[in-house]
Amino acid sequence: MNSEQLVTDVAAILAGAAPLIIATMGETITERAGVVNLSLDGKMLLGAMTGFVAGLYTQNVLIGFLVAALVGMLVALVLCVLSLSLQQSQLAVGFVLALLCTDLSSFLGHEYVRVPGVAVPNLPVPLLADLPVLGPLLFDHSPLVYASFVLVPLVWWWLSGTRSGLVVRSLGERPEAAHSRGVHVVRWRYGITLIGGALVGLAGAAYSLDLKQGWSHRHTAGLGWIALAIVIFGGWSPWRVALGCYVFGALQIAAIRWQSALGGFPTQVLQVAPFALMIVILVLVNMSSSPAVRRHVDRLPGVLRRPLHALFDRLAVAAPAALGKPFDP
């Protein structure tokens, strides 16, 4: 493979992962605030459908995105009311919403299947796009891809470097403590979940208005569950989650590219590799924190011990402690 092809491929991976990044960032902040929103898959479909239809009627992609974000927020609001205010299980509500919104998008979007619509234009950044390597890699994309580039460091900075980000993390780790410091836990969680919902809705529209232009039944079905899994795979850290999205995108391209190279091996299987990997990593994480394994490792010679320790430390992630738990002040 020549270097030019490599640049094109990496650029394709970066662009292809953009909607997933937007969705996973939405779910990451939601979960960091201690709320599990399982409804991603349905919410994304509903966002994709409504965004596409709104764009079609107004001939304006911006309105399409706006509508998709609002729809995402609306679905998130249902989750908030039922689980944060009325104390029903977040898992149950999110799960029901996922299935409900999927069917709803199919039913309401029936008229708009494979109708030509509006789409986001490509927008190379002047001058920068002509740079060798970096130009095609980073600066010759649609605005959504730039948004995905900005979103990851933004979320990271917000969560780790700002006061409000600190509050969000405390909501996920020790809501009682936050409460006693005068933070209105439920209200904050409402806010974050709504923002997360809007991002997921946008991600849906990013498919129907850009990456997989148009609408069809179950247009993005499955991608929401994948996004959800990637958030876990990424250990709720924006950088790792983004990495997960790119790994997933790369494997999808590998599945296409290797079809003839691998002879009879069905490369469709490669699509599930990230999930097998996710489970292996989760197991490794578990092992690394188990005292028995630690003891074994400690007995190894230093050459082996140090990299293993480093690996374990790096792997060690834990879900936000209060994730999915109801909060009753």
């Binding site: 092809q5 491929d9 997989k212 991608l223 994948i226 999808q252 391209i253 296409i256 469709q268």
Partner: peptide
Amino acid sequence: IPGVTLDPTQVANDFINA
């Protein structure tokens, strides 16, 4: 069929990139 088949959008896109 997402998650089951390869995604034709990506297949087409990959062809174009090649």
